[in-house]
Design a protein around this nucleic acid. Structure first.
Length: 329
DNA sequence: CACACGTGGCC
DNA sequence: TGGCCAAGTGT
C-alpha cells in the first residue's frame, strides 16, 4: 500500500527530530548564518565545512562585516574549501544586501534568489530554514530519496526529471502543517545524507522503508539513475619555477580565456610529453625536477611535473615578476 | 545544455 | 590506486 504524502512526511519529521545531527548552523535561524552554511555546503561535505563555517562566522559575524571586509581576507578564510567563486559571490551578495536592503537579510524568496551565488536550491533552503517559507529545496539528497521512494529510474541529470521531482517535492512539503515547514527540507536532506546514502543505503534504519518502492523491488542500490559521465581525459603538463631575488616569473591568464580566466600561473606547457622547446621559446632553460602534482577538474586529469627553471635574458612580454609574499597558498 | 569550478573520502 | 562521488550555480 502506498503511504500518503502527509503520513510519510510525519514519519520523516519524527525521525528527523530524534536523529538530526547537532551541526553548528542548526543552532541558529539567523538568515545570514544559514546562508553562509548553505553556500559552503554546495558540493562540499559537512565534515569539511564545519571548521570553515566556525572561522568564517567568527571573523565575519554579520552581513555588514562581510560586505566591508577586504576581498583578500574573505578568500583567506575560504582557502582550502574549493570553488572560490563562491567566496567572491558571497561578498558581492553581502554588498547587494547592504545596498538594496539596508543591510537586513531579505525575507522573501525572490530577493534571496537574486543574490549572486544563490540558485533555486539555496534560495529554497534559506527561505525554509530562516523564514519558514514553503519552497521545496531539491538537492542531490532529495532527488535520491525521491527516486528510491518512487522507484523512479529517470535520469536525474536531465532537466525535465529535476523539474518533475521539484514539483513532487513541492507537493510533499505543501501537504505538511505550517509549523513543520522550517524543518521539512532539512529532514529529507538529512535522510539522504545519513540513511538513504548513495552506496549501501541503511534501509533498516529508514522511517520510510515501508513505503519505499525501490526497496520493495530491490533497486535501492542502483537508483537514482545518472547517465554515464564523459570519459576522463588524461593530460601531462610541466611547470617551471623561475625565481629571481625572491620573485617568481608568472603570467595572468587573459580575461577571455575559457579556463581559469584572470588567474595567475607559472610558465607551463601541457602535452602528451614534456616539451623543453616550449620553455625554450620563452627563454627558459629547464633544470632539476623538484616536484609533481595531480589536478582533476570535470573530465580532465592533469599529471604535472615541476622543474627548476632559469630565464636567459629578458622576461617575455606577458610575464611579470611576482614576489613570493603575494602568493596565497 | 554542457561544461567549469576544488577538495577530500571511499572502495 | 584511480575513478567516482558530495548539501549547486553561472554561463
Amino acid at each position: 500500500m502506498p503511504v500518503s504524502l502527509r503520513q510519510s512526511g510525519r514519519l520523516l519529521l519524527a525521525w528527523y527530530r530524534r536523529n538530526a545531527r547537532d551541526l553548528p548552523w542548526r543552532r541558529t535561524r539567523d538568515p545570514y548564518a544559514v546562508w553562509v552554511s548553505e553556500i559552503m555546503l554546495q558540493q562540499t561535505r559537512v565534515e569539511a565545512v564545519i571548521p570553515y563555517y566556525e572561522r568564517f562566522l567568527a571573523r565575519f559575524p554579520d552581513v555588514k562585516e562581510l560586505a566591508k571586509a577586504p576581498e583578500a581576507e574573505v578568500l583567506e578564510r575560504w582557502a582550502g574549501l574549493g570553488y572560490y567563486r563562491r567566496a567572491r559571490q558571497l561578498q558581492a551578495a553581502a554588498k547587494q544586501i547592504v545596498e538594496r536592503h539596508g543591510g537586513v537579510f531579505p525575507a522573501d524568496y525572490e530577493s534571496i534568489r537574486e543574490l549572486p551565488g544563490v540558485g533555486e536550491y539555496t534560495a529554497a533552503a534559506i527561505a525554509g530554514i530562516a523564514f519558514g517559507l514553503t519552497y521545496a529545496a531539491l538537492d542531490g539528497n532529495v532527488m535520491r530519496v525521491m527516486a528510491r521512494l518512487h522507484n523512479d529510474g529517470r535520469d536525474i541529470g536531465q532537466a525535465r526529471t529535476r523539474k518533475s521531482m521539484q514539483a513532487e517535492a513541492q507537493r510533499w512539503i505543501d501537504a505538511m502543517p505550517v509549523a513543520d515547514f522550517a524543518d521539512f527540507n532539512q529532514a529529507t536532506i538529512e535522510l539522504g545524507a545519513t540513511i538513504c546514502t548513495p552506496r549501501s543505503p541503511r534501509c533498516l534504519g529508514c522511517p520510510l522503508s515501508a513505503g519505499c518502492l525501490a526497496r520493495r523491488e530491490g533497486n535501492q542500490g542502483s537508483l537514482p539513475y545518472k547517465s554515464a559521465r564523459q570519459r576522463v581525459e588524461k593530460l601531462d603538463m610541466a611547470v617551471a619555477i623561475v625565481e629571481r631575488r625572491g620573485r617568481l616569473l608568472m603570467r595572468q591568464r587573459p580575461d577571455d580565456e575559457k579556463l581559469m580566466p584572470g588567474f595567475w600561473e607559472l610558465p607551463q606547457y601541457a602535452s602528451s610529453r614534456i616539451d623543453a622547446h616550449a620553455f625554450a621559446a620563452l627563454g627558459i632553460e629547464l633544470g632539476e625536477r623538484i616536484g609533481a602534482f595531480k589536478h582533476a577538474i570535470t573530465f580532465r586529469a592533469y599529471s604535472g611535473q615541476v622543474y627548476q627553471g632559469t630565464l636567459e635574458g629578458e622576461r617575455p612580454d606577458e610575464y611579470r615578476w611576482i614576489h613570493g609574499s603575494r602568493l596565497v597558498l
